[in-house]
């Protein structure tokens, strides 16, 4: 007797987010990135559709990184203080299909760059490369609110993804993205209730649900990864069961979290038993990335080219039905 395979039926699907606009769509990008649209749990191809593969956004900074270890700086030697060359290197050499520009340099403690200067940087990067762009503030609410609207304005029509909007600071960025046709990231501190609330606050301002990505905040391997995993899993289950306010694609700041841990960046000289950091760091970042992929991540922002390569291969094999 054959046993019938039990399959889950879901009533809802994840929204589809498009980053980047080509010439025909009013932008100047030469390619676009489309994520989301899943109608099943990650990689369960038998139970629904997974129309788009997860995408890696390689991270670049507007100024020389202040807290990156040598292992992480090494692959970008010579371009670390030139965001335009850095962007080109990621695209030409490391085949990035999406870039994530982090505006560290606007933070009052790390350069306090002006809105105009930063907007020029954004413009130059958009001119230098054809891939779509994610643009992140510096986590200083006041400064972000001065600079990000200006960046939105100069990137008008390019359909970038801007972040992050939080429960306490979402209005300025939401209004700017709305005015200039960009997508937005809603951030919550590993808290499903706040994640849902942020999405409601953003949509209450008239923002299209299809233009929101959710940053659930993650912890790296060894630093609460399993907690973040379970929050993402719960949100995804609720979304597939019909909760529209949790049905946005996930963006996970993998590089940022992985390279915060001492296990990733600690030098072998200090921890001989941990082995060479040139391997350890990228592997730490890749393991963190693969874990969040399995809990439903759609966009991963990553740093080390070696980690990017490992995860890219993993995505390809996960997407093989």
């Amino acid at each position: 007797m054959s046993v019938e395979q039990v399959k889950e039926k879901w009533s809802n699907q994840i929204s589809t987010l498009t980053i980047g606009a080509t010439k025909e769509e009013g932008g100047t990008r030469t390619s676009k990135v489309v994520v989301g649209g899943e109608s099943t749990l990650p990689y369960l191809f038998d139970e629904g559709q997974i129309p788009n593969k997860p995408v890696i956004a390689m991270e670049i900074l507007d100024s020389e990184p202040v807290d990156w270890p040598c292992v992480l700086k090494e692959p970008f030697k010579g371009v670390l203080n030139d965001p335009v060359q850095w962007a080109k290197k990621c695209v030409d050499e490391y085949k990035a299909e999406l870039l994530c520009l982090r505006l560290q340099g606007i933070h009052p403690d790390f350069g306090d760059a002006s809105a105009d200067k930063t907007a020029d940087t954004v413009k130059s990067i958009l001119q230098a490369v054809g891939v779509p762009l994610i643009i992140l503030g510096c986590d200083h609410a006041e400064k972000d609110n001065q600079v990000l609207p200006k960046c939105c304005e100069v990137a008008k029509g390019e359909s970038c993804l801007f972040g992050d909007a939080t429960e306490d600071n979402y209005k300025t960025l939401t209004a700017a993205c709305l005015a200039d046709g960009h997508n937005i990231i809603g951030e919550s501190p590993i808290d499903i209730n706040i994640a849902k609330q942020v999405n409601i606050l953003i949509t209450d301002m008239g923002f299209d649900i299809k233009k929101i990505a959710m940053n659930p905040t993650i912890g790296a391997l060894g630093y609460g990864m399993e907690y973040a995993y379970s929050i993402m899993e719960r949100a995804r289950l609720a979304a597939l069961m019909g909760d529209k306010m949790l049905s946005m694609p996930f963006i996970c700041f993998v590089g940022q979290e992985a390279w915060r841990s001492k296990e990733a960046k600690g030098a072998q000289a200090e921890h001989p038993e941990w082995g060479p950091e040139a391997q350890r760091g990228p592997v730490w970042e890749a393991s963190t990335a693969i874990s969040v992929l399995l809990s439903g991540a759609d966009i991963l922002t990553m740093r080390h080219p070696k980690a990017v390569e490992i995860v890219r291969k993993t995505i390809d094999s996960l997407m093989k039905k």
């Binding site: 209730n193 706040i194 849902k196 609330q197 409601i200 209450d204 609720a238 529209k244 306010m245």
Partner: peptide, 15 residues
């Protein structure tokens, strides 16, 4: 049956 958030009434109506 639904995930809590402060605006849970609105959230339900937006389904």
């Amino acid at each position: 049956k639904h995930i809590y958030c402060d605006s849970f009434l609105d959230a339900y109506r937006k389904k």
